[in-house]
Each structure stands twice: as C-alpha cells, then as structure tokens.
Write a protein that binds this DNA or RNA. Structure first.
Lengths: 255, 255
DNA sequence: GCCGTACTGTGTATGTAATTCATAGTTTCA
DNA sequence: TGAAACTATGAATTACATACACAGTACGGC
C-alpha cells in the first residue's frame, strides 16, 4: 500500500523497479552494470578516477549515455555505496555480543578495504537493500535482550558510527589522507613527534605531557587492533549494562 | 628541538609561524583574514559557496592572490575546520563524566550549527591549535581516573567520533542531505513510511517488523535529544566500567 | 638618496568535469 | 507500414581550481 509513494528514479532502480518500457531500442545497459564498472574503477584508482567519462568508457558507451540511467553523479555514488557492501554475516545462534562485535568489525574492515567509501559515507539512514539488510541482522541479534525496537536501532546506529569513524581514523593515520601526508606524517610515531615539537606545555599541559611520555610510540597509535577493540568494548559494555538494567526493570514490573 | 621538523606552509601558518619577510610590498592579507572570510561564506551559503573566487572577492583581492597564503583549496578547508571550533568548555572541577558529556555535546552542537564542517571532517588526528586544545581538556578531565594516557586518548577519540556521526545523522534526517531530500524524506516519520513500503518481510523480518510497529513515529527518530544521549551514555557507561576495573586492578597491585 | 632584489597582487590562459540539448537511429504497437 | 516511444551520440556550456608571466612596491646596502 505505502508502496505507492513514488520513489525517485535511482532509489527505485536500486530496488529493482526498472521502468517497464516497450517501445524503442533495447537499452544496452542496466544500473547494475554501471555500478559494477564504477566500483571497479574506485577500487583500482580511488574515487578520483570515477568520472562520468571514465565509467562510460569502461562500459563502452558515450559519457552522456549514463544519464539515461542515473540523474547525477551524486546518485551514482549513493548507489555505489550501497552496492559495495557484502552480505552481513549470519548470526548462527551467536550470543548478541559476539555477533555485534563481528558485525561492526566486518563493516570497519570493508571501509578499510574500500577507502573510497569513506568519502561518500557520512552517516545517513540506510536506504539501500544491502545496508538495510545489515541493520535487520543487528536487530535480529538483539532479539531477546529486552531492548525495545528504538533502543535496538540506536545501538546499531552507534556501532556503525563507530566503524565509520574508526576506519576513517586508521585510514588517515596510515597514509590515506593528503592532509597528513602533506604534513609529512605517516604513522602515529610521526604524529607524536610533530606534536611534541608543536605543543606549548603551558597551553596544552595534559596533551603535551602525554606526548612527551611517548604514548604514540607505544601501543596506542589508533591503528592497532587493540585500539579498535577499545572503543568497541566501550560501546558493548554500555549495551550490556543497559540490557542488565532492562532485565532488572522487567523483572520488577512482572511482580 | 623537534621544532626543527619543517612544517608544510599552511600547517606552519596555522600555528602562527608566518614567514618573516623584509623586502617587498607589505602583504595586504594574512591567513586569519582569509579564513574568517571563508568561514563567513560557508556559514551563509554552505561549502558550495566557498570557491576561491568568492573568498577572494570577499577580502577584496584577485582570486589568485590567495595562493600567496595557501597552497591549495584543500589546505584552506583544513584550516577552516580547525578555526571554526570555539574554545573548549572549562572543567571547573566537574566530575569527569559530566565534563565529557558536555565536551561531546558541545562538539556535536557545533557541527549542527556549521553543517559544512561535516563535509570537511572525516575523523583524522587533530593537528590544529584549536582541536588539540579540545583533546587536551578531555585528557585533563580524565586525570585521576586511573586510566593511562593511551586509554584517555582512545576515550576522547571515541567520543569525538560519536559527536561526528551523530551530527551527520541528525543533519541528514532533518533535511540537510540531498540524498534524503531527493527521496522526498524529511524527518524520521517519512523514513519509516518509505521503508515500510519498501521492505519485504521475508528478507527483512526484524527491521520490517520494527518499522510496522511504528518505531520511527514514536520517540526514536534519531534526531531527538534522547537519541543523542542514548549513544553518549552507552560510551560513558563503558568508560565508567573501565575505570572501575582499573581501580580494582590498581588496588590489588598495591597490596 | 639610489638601486637591485625579493616579494606582492593582477590578468590571462589552461585543463578537467559535470551536465544540457538537439539530433539521428531503433524498435514495437496499431 | 507508419508513427510513437525510446535510445545513444556529439557538440556546446558552465564552473572551477590552478599555473604562469608580468608589473608594481618597499626595504637594505652603498
């Protein structure tokens, strides 16, 4: 019923609602082909390589032919971002905590594997079939925890957000960001060194002390697996605490 | 000593290392003036309005004159992102949890107030004087909690990350994102409606159930203050648990 | 006081991309 | 068989960022 809401063209096509046309020459392309080509280019050359001309060349049509399938480059990127996601891992009866940890890590690893996603994805509500599938699985994993739907969604949201920011951070520190490269920084140790030279201990007492004590040379440098787990556990511990509270409340409600 | 590392021009200028030049006409501009102009434009017209030509016109010079002060537009954006941040709130002896909550919220509100920051800022290690000041204050707030420097930094990182993703989400849902607007979605209720029409209950059992039960029409729609606090408390509960564990360990170490 | 030099701002020119539009060609339905 | 509906194309337009050569300016040594 609500189906009637007219979807904008790209979103519609994303969900397989291709326009049913009779007349005219058979289309030489479909959205999937275009997206696949665009993703291949992005994987190989980064987002910078994804120009309309480039994509068109790859699928063997003139640049402007693409505009029959998408309305703008923006749309292309949006659809790419959804299609680039693999299927979510299957729960297989895992405890919620294990599943959500895997769920989050897999998303982060995806972002590291396809760093161009980071340039498209600022966190927005998922609209594509793939991303929504991920969300669905997170909610499923939280079934039976006593959280309500809203809470489950918020938990999932916080976790994707973490995957996103952590990947962005790791990516920038390990040399992906031009802003870091320009500063001659590759790796946390460099960063610590630069900061040590830059920070006036009067103005930045705590930070400068931390840097001088060599935090960045040791275990903490944002990019280690420990660092990822640290934030993840912060969140999951929070979730666990919440679930505990809910259980308590529900028990006393039942009396 | 480490001061000697040659900073790239913009980064250096950000820290007040203006080049000491004798000869030649007195410069008509300085970096601060340019940044201020760029920020005014961004506040008024969004990032799209920030073209080199526009900024130059505003400060009353030819477009290409800007290149005497910055190397590229990218650099301009980077410096803008740092300068746009206000001074961090003062701790005033607040408990760490209260301070960090305020600290995070203030940053999120800044991002909502200047949405263009969201387009510049993917999470990267802070390099500018303002952002580093924020980091310093977070570390200071965690003094005496028993966390080590690395842990403190990781806590702060997780919190900024949360501020960033939450702001991005709110921003997109409340109409800031072209991708949402294009789908005719403004507000969580619209989102819920669209999804209800789109989702096949077989493929998306949990999510579709949640949508049909009207989550998005109720309290949860990502944009409410409750939703912000939800994720924030998740993190802070996690931090609290960690601090508790550290205290326990330290006590038994001391015996 | 004068002149060269180092440095500043200007105007022009170039290259890259996205996007619009009129056109020519291709199927299918009546 | 012809018209209608639709496809791909190429040329043209627009908006930028940026490189470069030039002209003017002020300081510092003589």
């Amino acid at each position: 019923m609500a189906q009637e809401r007219p979807l904008p063209s790209v979103l519609g096509r994303m969900w397989g609602h291709e326009p049913v046309s009779r007349r005219g020459p058979r289309p030489r392309l479909d959205l999937a082909t275009i997206i696949a080509a665009a993703i291949e280019i992005a994987d190989a050359e980064g987002l910078a390589g994804v120009s309309m001309a480039n994509v068109a060349a790859r699928v063997g049509v003139a640049t402007t032919a693409l505009y029959r399938y998408i309305d703008s480059k923006e749309d292309l990127l949006t659809v790419m971002a959804d299609s680039a996601a693999p299927l979510p891992p299957e729960p297989d009866g895992m405890p919620w905590r294990d599943y959500l940890a895997l769920w989050t890590r897999t998303q982060r690893d995806l972002l590291l594997d396809r760093p161009w996603l980071l340039s498209i994805d600022t966190l927005i509500p998922p609209m594509g079939p793939r991303r929504l599938l991920w969300l669905d699985r997170a909610l499923a994993a939280l079934a039976g925890t006593g959280l309500d739907d809203g809470e489950k969604i918020n938990v999932a949201t916080a976790l994707v957000g973490y995957a996103l920011t952590d990947a962005a951070l790791v990516q920038s520190v390990t040399g992906g960001d031009p802003r870091m490269e320009e500063a001659g920084i590759s790796g946390a140790a460099d960063y610590g060194e630069v900061l040590t030279g830059l920070l006036d201990p009067e103005t930045y007492p705590s930070l400068s002390a931390a840097m001088r004590s060599g935090v960045m040379e040791g275990a903490v440098g944002w990019v280690g697996d420990d660092d990822f787990r640290f934030g993840l556990d912060l969140l999951l511990d929070g979730v666990e605490a919440l679930i505990g509270r809910r259980a308590l409340r529900d028990r006393s409600d039942g009396e």
